[in-house]
Amino acid sequence: NSATRHELLFEHLQTISTGTLNILESAYRHAGGTKIFIAGSGLQFVNTGDPIKETDEFSAMDVYSVARIHAVYAARYFRNKGLQTYVGYLFHHDSPMRKENHLNQKIVNAVKAIEKGEESRLSISDVSVEKEYGFADDIAEGILHLVQKDEVFEACIGTGKAYTIQKWLELCFTSINKDWMDFVDTNKDFVPEFKRLVSDPETMNKSGWQSKTGIEELAKIMLHYSS
């Protein structure tokens, strides 16, 4: 379900690249005073494992990043033409609205099923991978905060804190008094897209916004949600 696999090249071109251009051109022609927010991604930067800033170099190493980079340059082009375009570089964030193809939600759903006795095993790749565990509500507030600024137009919107997938497993399984190792199969031959992906949200923090929801609270929110 990785968004970076080559088979999604033209889908990303249509939805991210062309979709962004359609929005920007429409606003430029018909609603010049509109503020436009474009979502970037932490995945489109060179990633050494250190916290990523919005001023860091881009890296077009996969089809998803290619599309995101194109969208950012489109936003910059229209900004130079007078349109108020903002880019927020987003990192991993979750909510109970996530579909099950997202790993964190997959784990949450499996834990709920195991608690009911409906499922016994969960297959996961590399539990040592570190990423952010932001709450989508906080990130949405960050987006709204950014577009209200007149001096900052691009920023990383993230928690600035990275945790392993194992940490998420421990939190979720502890909630039902189980040991995750008794229920999870790992693939040690799997090569992850990154070992650590974390933001440096200094620009947003200095402007008055920061993520409020920690990983423990996020786990409780997702585990206790009833659809």
Rank of each mutant, 00 (worst) to 15 (best):
H30E: 02
L43D: 06
T20K: 00
T34Y: 06
A60D: 04
G42K: 07
D50P: 07
T15P: 07
G19H: 00
H6D: 15
T55F: 09
A60Q: 02
F58C: 08
G40H: 06
A31H: 14
N22I: 00
A71C: 05
I23V: 15
A39T: 08
R76I: 12
H6M: 10
H6V: 14
A74H: 09
N47S: 09
F45E: 09
R76S: 10
A39K: 10
G40D: 06
I16S: 03
N22E: 00
G32H: 05
R79T: 14
E25C: 03
H70Q: 12
G33V: 05
V46I: 15
A39L: 10
S41C: 01
I69Y: 02
S41I: 04
L9G: 05
G32T: 04
K53V: 07
I36P: 09
R5M: 06
E54F: 08
F45R: 08
G49Q: 03
R76Y: 10
R79S: 15
Y64R: 01
H70T: 14
H30A: 03
A60G: 01
E25N: 07
G32A: 10
R68E: 09
S41A: 04
L21Y: 15
T20G: 00
A67Q: 00
G40Q: 08
H30R: 04
E11F: 12
S59R: 10
T48G: 01
A39P: 10
T48I: 03
S65L: 00
L21E: 06
N22W: 01
T34Q: 10
S26A: 07
R68C: 13
A31M: 10
I69T: 06
D56T: 09
S59T: 06
A39R: 05
